[in-house]
């Protein structure tokens, strides 16, 4: 049995290596000279160079990489913040304040989760154009707060948390809003962390909304920016890979810090499209 465990361990390590090898290759190749990039026979660069990175960053007029990064951070942070705030408030109202019609609303919200995202593409575009929000960050932030997943998940979590502490706080004369911010939010912190990380990643990696809703290059977020850069410079793989590596770095760092929450969020929920 112990021998079998070793075999499985080695085999799984190989699988893991297979999964990260494309990432390693990308990272390695981005440090190669442009002439060396298309030569797959050496994985490790013969000469390490920052040339590709320098080229990308120095042609800001061509690819405003810094701008895309700022846009991505701004949009993802705003979406995460608003989703956490809106969802937790709604979940508090439904599960704790038990507003009339709350549970029916929750059913509708859950029902809305099964409507496929593609159906919203055209009408949301239409609505945003009427609001004159196209090509502004609102277009990426506000519609993203309407998803039902956060409310659903927090309701689930809050139902399982005992209400005793909150009731005690009420008796001590705490207002409803006070209970929400001082007692309930800390109580559901683990769920908020999971939801927050999940939302952040989803927003950071979203490709279709910025593709459709943003017109100006300077308003793009990283995924669309990179795809556009690649479409323009498909012959310059070194630069494209350097851009990709830079765009992936922030998420790699987040993954290292929040590994547990990310894995939790995956296990409790879902797959991507």
């Amino acid at each position: 049995m112990k021998f079998l465990k070793w075999v499985v361990g080695i085999f799984m390590s190989l699988v893991a290596f297979l999964f990260i090898s494309p990432i390693l290759l990308m990272a390695m190749t981005s440090f190669k000279h442009e002439s060396d990039v298309l030569n797959p026979s050496t994985v490790v660069p013969k000469i390490w160079t920052f040339e590709n990175y320098r080229n990308v960053l120095s042609w800001a007029e061509e690819a405003p990489f810094g701008k895309w990064l700022l846009n991505s951070i701004f949009v993802s942070c705003s979406v995460t913040l608003l989703v956490l705030l809106f969802s937790s408030m709604a979940a508090y109202a439904i599960t704790r304040l038990k507003v009339p019609g709350g549970s029916q609303f929750l059913t509708v919200v859950i029902f809305s989760m099964m409507v496929p995202g593609q159906l919203f593409l055209v009408p949301v575009y239409f609505i945003l154009s009427k609001l004159h929000w196209l090509d502004t960050p609102f277009a990426l932030i506000i519609p993203a707060t309407a998803g039902g997943f956060g409310v659903f998940m927090l309701c689930q979590f809050m139902k399982a948390v005992p209400t005793a502490i909150e009731e005690a706080a009420m008796i001590d004369g705490c207002s409803l809003a006070g209970v929400y911010s001082k007692v309930t939010l800390p109580l559901i912190a683990p769920a908020l962390a999971t939801l927050g990380v999940f939302t952040f990643i989803g927003s950071w990696n979203d490709y279709v909304s910025p593709l459709v809703f943003m017109d100006s290059v300077r308003n793009y977020t990283l995924p669309v920016g990179i795809a556009m850069y690649q479409a323009s410079y498909y012959t310059e793989y070194g630069r494209t890979l350097a851009t990709s590596a830079m765009a992936s770095l922030p998420l790699m760092i987040i993954f290292l810090i929040f590994q547990k929450q990310i894995v939790d969020s995956m296990s409790s929920t879902g797959l991507k499209d």
């Binding site: 990432i23 995924p223 992936s248 991507k272």
Partner: peptide
């Protein structure tokens, strides 16, 4: 880890 990458990359 690969799931953390955007589809563009």
């Amino acid at each position: 880890l690969p799931g953390m990458f955007t589809i563009a990359v």
